[in-house]
Simulated assay, not measured.
Amino acid sequence: MHTKIEDQVITFATKDANFTGNYGTSKTVTISLDVYTKDVSYFGFGQTTRPLIVEMRDYDTPPAGLNYSSVWYYLGDFDPNKPLQHFSVTIADTKSKGLPAGWGGYGAISEDMHPELPSDRTFKNILASVDQLVFSTAMPGVVSDFVNFDVALDNISISAVPEPSETLMLGAGLGLLGLVARRRKRNGQVVN
């Protein structure tokens, strides 16, 4: 994904089923991507940087007055002085109710005027219903100036470690298939 634009923020978003769904079916999840930064500048008056976040949005139970609630993580900066970078974040416990260190929430405003998760939402239930995966320079609660962007994202990957019960079921199923194949071979049947 590549963009070359003058704007306050840029956002790359997908609702593709390969990147959305129930993240809670896995024990841990790692999101990673490569970033290419050719330009982030103030209209020819010098280079600058912009933050890059990953955000997982849930549209199913939106808070009053908003379209979604979400959890987000600051990955690093689009930085023209570091044109090629690799970013990743690992969610060590998809069943955590509270926000893990470094994670933020969106859907409500705290008393000190910062974005946060609504009181009826948890990290766990946002991850159980991810409708959209977003990479953006729009860090919740931060206002940005207009700049020239020439940036790209590539090699986006979601890696999941299945729950132990899923691994056991998969292993048992493969073992059963191997046993049936060996039995057929012993009995002279062709195994495909």
Rank of each mutant, 00 (worst) to 15 (best):
I5S: 07
E6T: 12
E6C: 03
D7H: 00
T14F: 08
D16R: 09
D16P: 00
N18F: 04
N18I: 06
N18K: 11
G21S: 06
N22D: 15
Y23K: 05
G24R: 12
T28M: 07
V29I: 14
V29P: 04
T30G: 02
I31K: 00
I31M: 04
I31D: 00
S32T: 07
L33I: 03
D34A: 13
K38W: 02
K38L: 06
V40Q: 09
V40L: 02
G44S: 10
F45W: 12
F45I: 00
T48D: 08
T49V: 15
P51I: 05
I53Q: 02
E55K: 11
E55G: 05
M56Y: 01
D58K: 13
D60Q: 12
T61F: 08
A64E: 06
S69L: 05
V71F: 02
Y73S: 02
Y74P: 00
Y74T: 10
L75K: 02
G76H: 06
G76R: 12
F78R: 04
F78T: 00
D79R: 05
D79H: 03
P80L: 10
N81H: 08
N81K: 15
Q85D: 01
H86P: 01
F87Y: 14
F87M: 08
S88M: 00
S88I: 01
S88K: 07
I91F: 09
A92M: 04
D93V: 09
D93T: 04
T94F: 11
K95I: 00
S96I: 01
K97I: 01
K97N: 07
L99N: 05
L99P: 01
P100E: 07
P100A: 12
A101G: 08
W103Q: 02
G104E: 10
G107Y: 09
A108S: 14
D112P: 05
M113L: 14
M113E: 13
M113Q: 12
L117E: 06
P118H: 09
P118G: 06
R121Q: 08
R121Y: 06
N125A: 02
N125M: 03
L127W: 03
D131W: 01
V134R: 08
V134C: 04
V134I: 14
M139D: 09
M139C: 03
M139G: 00
G141K: 11
G141F: 15
V142G: 00
V143S: 10
D145M: 13
D145Q: 15
F146K: 15
V147E: 06
N148E: 13
F149E: 08
D154M: 08
D154K: 05
S157F: 01
S157N: 15
S157W: 02
I158K: 11
S159H: 04
E163T: 11
P164T: 13
L168S: 10
M169N: 13
M169K: 14
G171I: 11
G171C: 07
G173D: 05
G173E: 04
G173Q: 12
G178A: 13
G178R: 02
L179E: 00
A181H: 01
R184G: 02
R184I: 01
K185A: 10
R186D: 03
N187K: 10
G188E: 08
G188T: 05
V190Q: 07
V191N: 02
N192W: 05
